[in-house]
């Protein structure tokens, strides 16, 4: 009897955990999008007001961010320091692939992020400003979508985790 109770509790705990993990990915996506938008705003300010080189900006972002966004900019920074003439858009693309392939960002987020890096540093200040404005709007829309998705699905997955666990226990008993 005790073994049955322990097993049932374990199954419910495990399925609840799975439910929480799935629901937390919605939370993570919002966090990462927010961090990306913030990083892009810093890039915008550094380019427009300080006219710092891209390498310096990336280095600052790598040092001042932690978790996934910090890793992303560290990957770019490392590649930049060892690239010697490699196109920046390739470096950016590779870093997006390497950092976000298995993360919480959606395919559309990743595609948008890749597109953002395509013309980076290759155009004059006015066009660079226009690019920033365009991508702010696009990333804001993605963020809005991520918040809606979280509200709709996060609780569902959490409840589903608990329910599935209870269902399995009931079936087994």
């Amino acid at each position: 009897m005790i073994i049955k109770m322990v097993l049932s509790a374990s199954i419910i705990a495990l399925s609840t955990l799975v439910g929480y993990l799935i629901s937390s990915s919605f939370e993570n996506r919002i966090k990462q999008l927010n961090a990306l938008i913030f990083a892009i705003k810093i890039m915008d300010a550094e380019m427009n007001y300080s006219k710092n080189y891209l390498g310096e900006i990336i280095n600052k972002l790598a040092l001042n961010n932690d978790e996934t966004i910090g890793i992303f900019f560290t990957n770019i920074n490392n590649a930049l320091n060892h690239s010697f003439g490699k196109d920046f858009s390739h470096i950016w693309n590779d870093a997006v692939e390497m950092t976000f392939k298995t993360g919480s960002l959606s395919k559309t987020d990743i595609k948008l992020l890749k597109d953002f890096g395509k013309r980076f540093g290759k155009i004059d200040l006015q066009n660079q400003k226009n690019i920033f404005e365009y991508f702010y709007r696009r990333f804001d829309l993605q963020l809005e979508e991520a918040i809606n998705e979280k509200e709709k699905k996060s609780r569902v997955y959490r409840n589903l985790g608990v329910s599935v666990g209870i269902m399995i226990v009931v079936i087994l008993i």
Binding site: M47, K51, N52, Y53, L54, G55, L80, S83, F84, G85, K86, D87, F88, F120, G121, K122, I123, D124, L125, Q128
Partner: peptide, 16 residues
Amino acid sequence: LGIFNSVLNYSVYAYE
């Protein structure tokens, strides 16, 4: 173009 971008540190905006 690769050399040009490398010369400009990938920062055309800073060299206008």
